[in-house]
C-alpha cells in the first residue's frame, strides 16, 4: 500500500514537472535566451491584427501590436520598427509611401509591462507580403523581432473612377465631331 502511494506521488510529481516545463519552456527559454544572450533585450513582440490585415490597394489599415517587457526591471529607450517584404519578389518594400511613421519611439517599458503599438499603413501596391515588428533598445546590441504575419493586398480594379471615362472619351469625340461638322458646312457652302 505504502509502495503504491509512493509510486502514485512520484507519477504526479513527474507529470506536473513535465507539463509545467511544456507550458513555461518557451518563456523560460526566451527569457533564458534573453538572459542567456546579454546582447538581446528581454522583449516580446506580437502582432495582434494579423487576421484583419488583408485588403485592397489604396486601403488604409491599422497594424496593432504589443510590446512586452519580459524582465522585472524597466527598459528604457525602446524603438519599434515595421519591416515589410514582398513574398513574391523576395524583395523588401520601401515603406516611404506605405507608412508615415516606420519607427515608433516607445521610450520606457516598466518591469513586466505591456504597451500597445499602432501603425497606420497605406496599401500602395497589390501583392503578397510578410510583416514583422523589430525592436531595438539603446543598451542592447541586438534587435529582437516578432513572429511574421502574412497578408494579401488585392489589386484595385476600377475602370471608371471619378466618372473620368465620359470626359476622357467624350471630349475628344465631341471636338472631332464639332470640327468635322464645321468643315462639312463650309465645304457645302463653297461647293
Amino acid at each position: 500500500m505504502k509502495d503504491k502511494l509512493l509510486k502514485t506521488k512520484y507519477f504526479f510529481t513527474i507529470s506536473a514537472a513535465v507539463i509545467s516545463f511544456a507550458v513555461f519552456a518557451p518563456n523560460i527559454s526566451s527569457a533564458q535566451t534573453a538572459a542567456g544572450d546579454p546582447a538581446m533585450p528581454p522583449i516580446i513582440l506580437e502582432i495582434s491584427s494579423s487576421r484583419t490585415l488583408s485588403g485592397t490597394a489604396g486601403d488604409f489599415v491599422e497594424v496593432h501590436g504589443d510590446i512586452k517587457n519580459a524582465a522585472s526591471k524597466p527598459i528604457t529607450d525602446v524603438t519599434a520598427y515595421l519591416s515589410l517584404v514582398d513574398t513574391k519578389t523576395h524583395m523588401p518594400v520601401d515603406l516611404e509611401d506605405w507608412s508615415v511613421e516606420k519607427g515608433l519611439f516607445v521610450g520606457t517599458i516598466g518591469g513586466a509591462a505591456t504597451l500597445p503599438l499602432d501603425w497606420k499603413i497605406h496599401f500602395v501596391t497589390s501583392g503578397d507580403y510578410a510583416l514583422s515588428i523589430l525592436a531595438v533598445v539603446k543598451d542592447y546590441d541586438k534587435p529582437i523581432g516578432s513572429a511574421i504575419t502574412y497578408f494579401h493586398v488585392a489589386p484595385k480594379q476600377n475602370l471608371n473612377p471619378g466618372a473620368v471615362l465620359p470626359v476622357a472619351l467624350g471630349e475628344p469625340i465631341f471636338l472631332a465631331m464639332f470640327f468635322l461638322a464645321f468643315k462639312y458646312r463650309r465645304d457645302k457652302k463653297s461647293a
Binding site: G58, V124, T125, S126, N158, L159, G162, L165, E171, P172
Partner: peptide, 15 residues
C-alpha cells in the same frame, strides 16, 4: 484624356 485616365486608374499613380 490619357493623363487623367492614368492618374485615376493606374495602380500606383492613382494613389
Amino acid at each position: 484624356s490619357v493623363t487623367c485616365y492614368l492618374l485615376l486608374t493606374n495602380k500606383e499613380l492613382s494613389l
